[in-house]
């Protein structure tokens, strides 16, 4: 039940940002010197920012930037990480040592520290921010998949399969993957929230989306200077960020709970 509610809201959210072009009342990039920092009104439901741009339209388009980048990043990291993790956990030996050493190396860089340095050197841009976060993100999936694989590797049903002479690939996909998928996939879902926090954090620091691109983190950062006179330029993108992250985390939790039943 919870899943359906969460999924329905996520669907609504996705529809809103996909159809941003249709819903948005104004051009999110059109500046207007005569309409600077307008309080919310009928024409500009969330008011206007320091350059007279419609905040509501920018929030919609900004959602597109943030969510698309997040999805892309999580999906790729999940696929690569889980595959490597299962291989390492199941086969062990030199293969595991090589990959886990690589994972250790990537993991030994605290993710955001690396991301900030890499994004800083790459000179900003959403692609740079994604690369910066991505080079360490797969590791978490690999580690999780590996540890779960190890914890079930000596279970009787796996042993039985091994003794029955079943192939490694067969066992990994038939027995291990289904048994570790729930926690790893749930982790992927919760990673959506975390990744979004990371990406908008980088943008907030000026290391992600480049102005004038609409992006929640950078909108909050821009509006911060005028928070006293035009709080809506911060509060609405902030609300959108919180709502979106909460929603995805809620979906993750709902799935987790469903899986536990």
């Amino acid at each position: 039940m919870q899943i359906y509610i969460a999924a329905a809201f996520v669907f609504l959210l996705l529809a809103a940002v996909i159809l941003a072009g249709k819903i948005a009342p104004n051009d999110p990039y059109r500046t207007n010197a005569t309409l600077i920092r307008l309080a919310p009104c009928r024409e500009y439901p969330f008011g206007t920012d320091n350059l007279g741009r419609c905040v509501f339209s920018r929030v919609l388009f900004g959602g597109r930037t943030t969510i698309a980048a997040t999805f892309f990043l999580v999906a790729i990291s999940f696929g690569i990480g889980t595959f490597i993790g299962i291989l390492c956990g199941f086969y062990g030996g030199i293969f595991e040592r090589i990959f886990m050493r690589i994972a250790d190396i990537f993991l030994s860089f605290p993710q955001m520290v690396v991301a900030i340095a890499v994004a800083g050197i790459l000179g900003g841009g959403m692609a740079g921010a994604m690369v910066a976060l991505g080079i360490t993100m797969w590791v978490a999936f690999a580690r999780l998949a590996r540890s779960h694989t190890i914890s079930i590797r000596n279970e009787p049903y796996i042993m039985t399969s091994i003794l029955a002479g079943k192939g490694g690939i067969y066992i990994m996909f038939r027995h291990i993957l289904p048994n570790i998928l729930a926690p790893v996939l749930t982790n992927a879902l919760t990673q959506i929230g975390t990744t979004m926090i990371g990406l908008s954090g980088l943008s907030f620091l000026g290391l992600g989306a480049i102005p004038p691109t609409a992006e929640w983190g950078s909108m909050i950062s821009e509006g911060r200077a005028y928070i006293q006179i035009a709080p809506w330029t911060v509060l609405f993108p902030a609300l959108a960020t919180i709502l979106t992250i909460t929603l995805f985390n809620y979906l993750g939790d709902a799935v987790m709970e469903y899986r536990n039943v």
Binding site: S200, G201, S221, I245, T246
Partner: peptide
């Protein structure tokens, strides 16, 4: 809720 709040947002 705490987990869903980016720290830059909380601080702002």
């Amino acid at each position: 809720i705490g987990n869903s709040m980016p720290n830059f947002l909380i601080s702002v």
